[in-house]
Amino acid sequence: MLETPPLANGGREGLKMTTKDALIKYCLRLGDTSLILGQRMAEWCSNGPTLEEDIALTNLSLDFFGQARTMLSYAGELEGKGKSEDDFAFKRNEREFYNTLLSERPNGHFGDTIARNFLHDAFLYHLYSALRNSKDEIIAAHSAKSIKEVTYHLRHSSEWMVRLGGGTEESHQKIQDSINDLWMFTGDLFAMNEVDEILIKEGIAVNLKDIKKNWDNTVNEVLHRATLQRPEDAYMQSGSLEGRHAECLGHLLAEMQFLPRAYPEATW
């Protein structure tokens, strides 16, 4: 088995994880998740079902990149080694990314994207709602700003869930299949480890078990309105907390990181 990547404990092998180490890791989780969702949503540019929807989908992307930049910059600040948002985004390897497994799922067709976003938006909505009360000022401020964006995102994806579920027979079947296919990645959203344990004690992070209850309510309510079935909780994939991802992440990173890796001396 691979060692946990170096950032996991701030390079202090054998030492107990400090609050700061845990917070850095937490910022990377939030930042990476937004970054990867941003990258995925940007893939919709010039591919939307209408010009209006094209703009709406890439607006989501812009919000996600904004969130990612705040969290990755903060991680660099906390770490204190002069790393920028771009160092984190472009110079880390697959096993050093902590984005949720759901966020990296390929766009597929429009319904797949809407289903992925919906399941994820519901998570981020409740997470950022709660994190507004974080004892860490930056996390609290970031959450207060992000909740406005995420509220809109959740409305956008929920409305499409309802439209596709209640639209044609074809759209109903498609969006039900999308939800079914993505369901096994939802368990990973709520995984917790030592990072959470430390930060919950400090009042910085929140217990994801509580977020899960709220997420269940939102998901059930929207699926009901969309006349869709909630899948059974069968086997759930896991691994994002250890930087263990699906194969698709490596391809996304290879493409995204190409220029800074190919020209390490250059600035842009």
Partner: peptide, 18 residues
């Protein structure tokens, strides 16, 4: 867009295309 060399450059380009 997917290969923009910095996050700032990416956001500027994406906003331009929008």
């Amino acid at each position: 867009i997917s290969r923009a060399p910095s996050l700032r450059a990416k956001v500027v380009l994406l906003a331009k295309i929008q």
